[in-house]
């Protein structure tokens, strides 16, 4: 584990709260840490909590979306949770709606989503 963002095993899933401002390097290291944690723990699901982030630019958004896609390739479903209204508004206005990324309002709903059949909202 290289980066400053802890990744916790909670039941069958991994839970990570991004609690620091993401520089490009921290975002890239986070991505690698998540993938290694999936391999190490065999987690069936991944919840990435971004409720602390006051802004998410397109670079960070792309790293987060890619992390979910990479996890999916490994066989782990992921949910991005806690996006602030300001972040959602800004990303959509920029034309970056993060299509294909599963999202939920908060950690509880994210974990519930992972327990539900795919596509069930």
């Amino acid at each position: 584990m290289g980066g400053p963002i802890p990744i916790l095993k909670v039941g069958p899933n991994l839970l990570t709260t991004i609690h620091v401002e993401l520089t490009d390097t921290i975002a890239e290291v986070f991505q690698q840490d998540v993938l290694r944690a999936i391999e190490r723990t065999g987690a069936g699901g991944l919840v990435i909590d971004i409720s602390v982030l006051e802004e998410v630019d397109t670079y960070v958004a792309r790293v987060l979306a890619d992390t979910g896609r990479m996890a999916a390739l490994m066989g782990t479903r992921s949910v991005l949770v806690g996006m602030r209204p300001e972040v959602a508004a800004t990303l959509v206005r920029m034309g970056y709606g993060m299509e294909g990324v599963e999202t939920a309002l908060d950690v509880d709903r994210g974990i519930a989503r992972l327990a539900s059949p795919r596509g069930d909202r």
Binding site: E54, E55, V56, T58, Y59, E86
Partner: peptide, 27 residues
């Protein structure tokens, strides 16, 4: 950008928009 926008009374949406634009352009 964030500190100045907040000190001048920008609302949270405008602050996030300006700060994100600054992040993109600085990158």
């Amino acid at each position: 950008a964030r500190a100045l926008a907040q000190s001048r009374g920008f609302d949270s949406f405008a602050t996030a928009a300006l700060t994100t634009a600054a992040s993109e352009l600085a990158r």
